[in-house]
C-alpha cells in the first residue's frame, strides 16, 4: 500500500554549504539520503514530495557541522498482510519463487502454489500446470496475496501465496 505521510529527520550539514543555497543543499541531501531506503515500520520511501519545515539549526561542538530538523512529505510503500499485490517473478526454484513489487521481495513457496502446478527444472525453471496452459517463470507477472510481512530497519520480507481465487499469473512473458 502507498501512503503519503510526513516524516522528520535530523540532517547534518557541513559548514561549507552555508549560504544562500543552504535550503537546496539540505533538500538534495535529504533526497539522496532517504529515497529508496527502508524506513523502519513505515516501509520504503519511494519519493519525497515536499518539505514542510526546516527547524533551527544546532551547531555541534568541535566539528562545526550543523544539525537541522527537517519535516518532509513523502510517498512510502509498505506491504501488509492480506494485501493483494501484482509482482514480477525474479527467480524460480524448487522451493518456490521470488517476486518483486517495486522494492519489496516476496517469497511464494511451493506450498502456496496451486497443487496442479509442478516444478520443471532446466535452463528456465518454471511451475507449469499439467496441461501446460499456465506457466510461471522468470519475468512472469503474478497477482499474489501477502500472508506475512516482517519490516526491519532496512529491509522488508514478505511471504505470499497464489493458492487462492483470482491469484496467479496475469501475464506470461512468452506470449508478449
Amino acid at each position: 500500500m502507498f501512503f503519503h505521510i510526513v516524516l522528520e529527520r535530523n540532517m547534518q550539514l557541513h559548514p561549507r554549504h552555508f549560504g544562500r543555497n543552504l535550503r537546496e543543499h539540505l533538500i538534495s541531501k535529504l533526497m539522496k539520503d532517504v529515497e529508496g531506503t527502508c524506513s523502519g515500520r513505515h516501509g520504503f520511501v519511494v519519493a519525497i514530495t515536499g518539505v514542510e519545515s526546516i527547524g533551527k539549526g544546532l551547531i555541534r561542538d568541535g566539528t562545526g557541522f550543523v544539525t537541522f530538523p527537517v519535516k518532509y512529505q513523502c510517498v512510502v510503500f509498505r506491504p501488509f498482510k492480506g494485501e493483494i499485490l501484482e509482482a514480477v517473478v525474479t527467480m524460480v526454484n524448487k522451493m518456490g519463487f521470488f517476486a518483486e513489487a517495486g522494492p519489496v521481495q516476496i517469497f511464494v513457496s511451493n506450498h502456496l502454489i496451486p497443487d496442479d502446478m509442478e516444478f520443471q527444472s532446466g535452463d528456465m525453471p518454471n511451475y507449469t500446470t499439467s496441461d501446460g496452459s499456465v506457466k510461471i517463470q522468470k519475468d512472469s507477472e503474478v497477482r499474489l496475496k501477502i500472508i506475512g510481512t516482517r519490516v526491519d530497519a532496512t529491509e522488508i520480507f514478505c511471504i505470499g501465496t497464489i493458492k487462492d481465487d483470482f491469484l496467479g499469473v496475469i501475464n506470461d512473458p512468452t506470449t508478449i
Partner: peptide
C-alpha cells in the same frame, strides 16, 4: 522460513532448526 516467517503459513517462527540457504536468498 523466509525473513523469520514460516513460508507456508506466514507466522513468525523461531529460527533454530534446519539449514540456512543464504546462497539462494
Amino acid at each position: 522460513s523466509y525473513g523469520g516467517m514460516c513460508y507456508k503459513c506466514g507466522q513468525k517462527v523461531e529460527e533454530e532448526s534446519g539449514v540456512t540457504f543464504g546462497y539462494i536468498r
